[in-house]
């Protein structure tokens, strides 16, 4: 499995062509909720004072998400902003803060961030959740794997009941937990 990254950490990451030119930076991540993957990115110009760009980057045109940069083949693949934003079922802004319910109907907290795989898959692996009393009396932020089918809307995120048993406190240990959860679900 590729290294994991929080979607919020992708904001501000530089977009570099394979020709070695920095052409933009990531502004926001747009998700396709039902498909459980990144649809694309909205972009801003480079530098402190640069504003948002009218263009966006569809995920299929991303060569790789790396720890230091998002690599693309060419700047000519940028599209009109609406091409990406309009298609996303659930923008990140609406996923964040949404209440998290288990399949059994227990409210376990709210979505704090989205965990995605680096590399070229753009797959949503799970969520960082600001836990409430039902999950963690100390209200810590924990990582919960997503179910095979992802049920997310602007109103709520529903996760499988078993996912609660594969919770992790930090990203590195979450990678192993998410893997274990997938294996567990396949065996059922």
């Amino acid at each position: 499995m590729n290294t994991l990254v929080l979607a919020s950490e992708l904001s501000g990451r530089v977009v570099v062509t394979l020709g070695g030119e920095a052409v933009a930076q990531i502004k926001d991540v747009v998700f396709d909720g039902p498909a459980g993957r990144i649809t694309g990115f909205t972009l801003s110009g480079r530098g402190l004072l640069a504003g948002p760009l009218k263009q966006s980057l569809r995920f299929s045109h991303v060569h790789a998400i790396g720890p230091s940069a998002v690599m693309i083949v060419s700047q000519s693949l940028f599209e009109d902003r609406d091409a990406v934003v309009g298609r996303g079922e659930a923008g990140r802004g609406r996923v964040l803060g949404a209440p998290v319910l288990t399949e059994e109907g227990t409210d376990i907290g709210t979505v704090a961030d989205v965990v995605v795989e680096t590399g070229s898959s753009g797959r949503v692996v799970g969520f960082e959740i600001a836990a409430n009393d039902n999950l963690d009396p100390e209200h810590r932020k924990v990582f919960v794997p997503r179910g095979q089918s992802l049920a997310v809307s602007g109103e709520a995120l529903v996760i499988p009941a078993q996912a609660q048993r594969f919770v992790a406190d930090d990203l590195p240990s979450f990678a192993a937990q998410a893997e274990a959860f997938l294996t567990h679900m396949r065996q059922r």
């Binding site: 530089v14 570099v16 062509t17 394979l18 020709g19 070695g20 940069a69």
Partner: peptide, 10 residues
């Protein structure tokens, strides 16, 4: 070597 631009060598 894949590319050499003003930002990086890829």
């Amino acid at each position: 070597l894949m590319g050499l631009g003003s930002y990086a060598t890829v």
